[in-house]
Design a protein around this nucleic acid. Structure first.
Length: 408
DNA sequence: GCCACCGGTGGC
DNA sequence: GCCACCGGTGGC
């Protein structure tokens, strides 16, 4: 039996919360029913932001006719941690590579005159369909029939709105409705007029938020990365990955006919930031939400983990959980502290000394047909200037270092 | 005033 | 060295 096909009768996990989550219809449902992104950390200012924004800054300062004055380059040398600085340098390089790739594609598909002179158009991330849709609607000055919520809305809303969001995503990927915005216009960035009839355009904050938009698991056999279509499915895999090492054969639970012979779904040079997750973290209790906040590159730590309770309370530590359960004995009867974990992901290529796995050894090859073929649009693309999409990756816990030692 | 973000600190 | 915990602080 496929332990990761959760719509079967025998899910691997046995906890009540798992069963409850299974009832939400994960499994083979390809409609991406966990679209909630994890809100993650932001740099307090544009200058001190992640190096992922470096390409953005450079592009802005170098763009002809740019209203922004040139900015000084990020002070990589000033960073405290050389390893972390190297990580972010690689990230910046990958972002720049992605920008160049997509810019080239855009040039090939768009007449030069058209890409013109819209000073509002962002340089990085490259102009995507969402931005073009935004410009299109902005030009039309239309009021969508169904203004949709900002994807940055409270993550708590995901439980009740997963199906709705999934429907929207399916609609969003249907280009045939471009002419008819009623009902299925892009839910990402939609300008509309306020009651005074003024254009209420999205506010481009200076804050740069890391948004976990993609969940990926590494095959224990071929070491290729497989994108997991939902956060809940990802958490199921993560909880059991030691007992049941992930393999490509389990991918058919959400994407049929995938084997180790197929190219990797996603590679580390796709322009997104990566965070390597911790195995065997218990699934988030039903009604709760586990969020990861990536800190900026200058911070002494990579990320923070917190839970949002069903009542909306944010807990940041096990002590917080204890206090919450003391204050809410009704929940205490159904919850155990062991269902919570505040272990944080680590940056890619920056393993802790105690870690055996070096991600650089298992880099998958580049896939021409990346994750977006069957993944929902990352919320991070909703606002290009502020959101940096992050891949939360779960690496197989294999003793690669031993293998390497044998080879040496 | 709230809260996201950050860093200090102490335990292991 | 790593990590859990939590208080300070600045932006909104």
């Amino acid at each position: 039996m496929d332990p990761f096909v959760s719509d079967t009768t025998g899910p691997v996990t046995t906890s009540p919360k798992t069963q409850g989550q299974e009832e939400e219809g994960l499994g083979t449902d390809p409609s991406f029913n966990s679209l909630t992104t994890e809100s993650v950390g932001a740099s307090p200012d544009a200058e001190g932001g992640a190096a992922a924004t470096q390409a953005d800054d450079e592009a802005e300062s170098g763009a002809p006719g740019s209203p922004s004055p040139p900015r000084p380059p990020p002070s990589i040398s000033a960073r405290r941690d050389p390893l972390r600085a190297a990580c972010f340098r690689r990230l910046a390089a990958s972002c720049e590579a992605r920008r160049l790739r997509e810019a080239a594609l855009l040039r090939a598909s768009k007449p030069p005159a058209e890409k013109a002179e819209d000073p509002d158009e962002p340089i990085w991330p490259p102009r995507s369909r969402y931005w073009r849709r935004f410009v299109e609607l902005k030009t039309m000055g239309s009021r969508p029939a169904n203004p949709v919520p900002n994807p940055d809305e409270s993550s708590l809303s995901h439980i009740k709105s997963q199906d709705m969001l999934a429907d929207k995503v399916v609609d969003q990927w249907d280009d045939s409705d471009t002419e008819n915005s009623s009902g299925s216009a892009s839910y990402q960035v939609v300008p509309y007029k306020n009651v005074q009839g003024e254009n209420n355009l999205p506010v481009l904050s200076k804050k740069r938020k890391f948004i976990i938009s993609t969940y990926s698991v590494q095959c224990s056999t071929c070491q290729k990365w497989r994108v997991v279509p939902s956060k809940l499915k990802y958490e199921q895999i993560r909880e059991n990955i030691i007992q049941v090492p992930f393999s490509c054969k389990y991918v058919h639970g959400w994407k049929p006919q995938v084997t180790c012979h197929d190219p990797t779904d996603i590679s580390e040079d796709n322009g997104m930031a990566w965070a390597i997750d911790i195995p065997c973290i218990p699934q988030t209790p039903l009604g709760w939400e586990r969020n990861i906040t990536l800190r900026n590159e200058q911070s002494t730590r990579f990320a923070d983990v917190y839970y949002i309770s069903p009542t909306g309370r944010k807990v940041r530590s096990m002590k917080d959980v204890e206090r919450y359960l003391e204050d809410n004995p009704d929940y205490a009867a159904r919850l155990q502290l062991s269902q919570f974990s505040f272990r944080v992901p680590k940056p890619p290529n920056c393993p802790r000394q105690s870690d055996l796995i070096e991600p650089t050894e298992v880099l998958p090859p580049v896939h021409e047909d990346p994750v977006h073929n069957y993944m929902p649009a990352p919320h991070g693309e909703a606002n290009h200037l502020t959101h940096i999409p992050v891949i939360l990756a779960l690496q197989v816990p294999v003793m690669l270092s031993k293998k390497r030692k044998l080879n040496q």
